[in-house]
Amino acid sequence: MAPGILQAKALTKSFKGFYAVDGVTLNVEEGSIHALIGANGAGKTTCFNLLSKFLEPTSGSIVFKGKDITRSKPDRVARLGLVRSFQISAVFGGLSVMENVSLALQRGRGESFDFWRSPRALAHQRPRAEELLESVGLSAYKETPAAELPYGRKRALELATTLALDPEVMLLDEPTAGMATEDVGRIARLIQTVAKGRTVVMVEHNLGVVSELCDRITVLARGQILVEGDYETVSRDERVIESYIGGGGHE
């Protein structure tokens, strides 16, 4: 297998002896949409937090664009082009929709410690911000405080904010979690559009979305990889069916 844009080797995370992620090796190919699925407690979210560096791995290594990021800080990997979203929609609630996107855009200027500068220094990025809001259908809400948006719109805003950084790899944590059916379709289409020319790794529960969008699927169970392949392969695998039914039976 050719080395992908994001690789994890024998990634392990233990919490006081409990192995939440146990020797996971992943190879995410550039330009693909890669899904991590599995029953509750399979280690998807931990794995996700390890890849985005919000958690330190106990052992193993992570390589992004040929660079070892195993011990890098999360803000550092974000600046390298590996940007994550959150399961609970992460918007800056007290700020307007426009300000949310603008905050991501201004990152491009460097580290902006310029407390003496007027906000006019950011005026030039407004057209780009409007373009981004247009692309996720939020043009009508520019001045609305993000906290007042309905849930589905918040996810759209989060996506626009992530896109503003123009990341090479987007890590999406359950982008359709807790959404009404009509919103799920809209967000799925949106992901498909924005994924062009990018690599996406997503944790997702909704198998419809996974089958529709994802090129490659890794199924986790008890912190380890159960199966990996395209939707056809994975959905026919007996262990996967069993794991899902087994996992589902307890809920």
């Binding site: 985005s52 803000d75 974000a78 600046r79 940007v83 992460a90 800056f92 905050l103």
Partner: peptide, 12 residues
């Protein structure tokens, strides 16, 4: 407003 999100946008 949301510290982890600020980190994920790449702010130190």
């Amino acid at each position: 407003e949301h510290e982890p999100r600020a980190v994920s946008l790449g702010y130190p």
